[in-house]
Simulated assay, not measured.
Amino acid sequence: MPVPGEQNQGARLRAPALYVYGIVPADVEVDGQAQGVGDAGTMRVIRHREIAALVSETDQSAPRPTDRAAHEDLLDATAAEVPVLPLPCGTVVPDRAAVLDGLLKPRHDEFARALRELEGRAEYLVELRYPAQERPREPDVRALVEALAPVSARLSPGRPTGRRDTARLAVLAETHRAGELERALDTLAEGWAGRIELRLFGPLAPYDFMPPG
């Protein structure tokens, strides 16, 4: 999701620029001890009407090797508490005006609507892996979809793993139904014991359910 005003990663920014993690409701407050990609203690929100951008100060113009984990850890922890729309790792803008004019103001209504749809929900990622390193079978994937559909608000193919023996299914579900999701997977796992491994990750930020743009 390109952000107007985002800097070329090959150029050096004057410190401090702003690293933008994602979009949250405007009433969200930031824990003073929250640690993201930027310096400790610099996390804050920039608000515009119903929405806000979760940001921290940074003097980096390009992502470092450790940034992706810090970026995703912060967003996943946020998603467990409040709705969040994640932005790509490495989204850096020069200042507060760029956040407001390039992101929050032009897409306010779209982001506000998406956040309302995510209220009380998070992404859960289900990984289906074949120990014999065979390719995932379509009937097994269909069985997984059918088993999880009753406890899911939406389903989507998950981000590719790069492994030929693994398939992923992204599940958008209400967080209070996480137990039902786990039980549905346990039932499948019993029937697939020794043939297929199932792993569940979440709650996560809804990376696979972002609005287009």
Rank of each mutant, 00 (worst) to 15 (best):
I46W: 02
L87A: 02
G90R: 02
E57V: 10
E110P: 04
C89F: 13
L100R: 04
V45G: 10
L75V: 11
G102Q: 03
R116D: 09
P65N: 08
R47D: 04
T42A: 13
L85V: 13
A112E: 06
P65R: 11
A122W: 00
A77F: 13
R49C: 12
D109H: 05
H71P: 03
A112Q: 09
L85R: 02
V99C: 01
L115S: 02
D101M: 05
A122C: 11
K105Q: 15
V45Q: 10
D95V: 10
L74C: 05
R121M: 14
L85N: 02
A80V: 04
R121Y: 12
P88A: 13
A53D: 02
K105H: 13
P94Q: 14
P65M: 10
A52E: 06
T42E: 09
V84R: 01
A52V: 14
A114S: 14
T58Y: 04
A62E: 07
P86Q: 09
L118G: 04
R107Y: 13
T66Y: 15
A112L: 12
D101L: 09
L100F: 05
G102A: 07
L115M: 10
H48C: 04
V99K: 00
V82Q: 15
V45S: 11
T58L: 05
T78C: 15
L74E: 03
A62G: 12
Y124K: 03
T58F: 04
E72K: 08
I51F: 03
P86K: 06
R47C: 06
V55A: 08
L54H: 00
V92R: 03
F111V: 08
G102T: 07
E57G: 14
H108L: 14
T91M: 12
L115W: 01
G102N: 05
G102D: 03
P94F: 12
D95P: 06
H71W: 03
E57D: 15
Q60N: 14
V55D: 01
L104T: 03
A52F: 10
R47T: 08
L103V: 05
P63W: 11
A77S: 15
T91R: 05
A77D: 15
G41I: 07
L54G: 00
E119M: 07
I51K: 00
V55P: 00
L74D: 01
E50V: 08
G41M: 07
Y124V: 04
L75W: 01
V92C: 07
L100G: 02
L85W: 01
C89K: 11
A62N: 13
L75P: 00
H71V: 07
A79K: 00
P63C: 08
D101K: 10
A98C: 02
L75M: 11
R64N: 08
D59A: 13
R49A: 15
R107E: 14
A98N: 00
A112R: 07
H48A: 06
A62D: 12
R47Y: 06
E72D: 14
R44P: 04
A122H: 01
D67M: 12
K105P: 06
A69C: 06
L85G: 01
D67L: 10
A97P: 02
A69E: 13
V84K: 00
A52H: 10
R47P: 01
R47V: 07
S61K: 06
D59H: 08
C89D: 15
D109Y: 02
A79S: 12
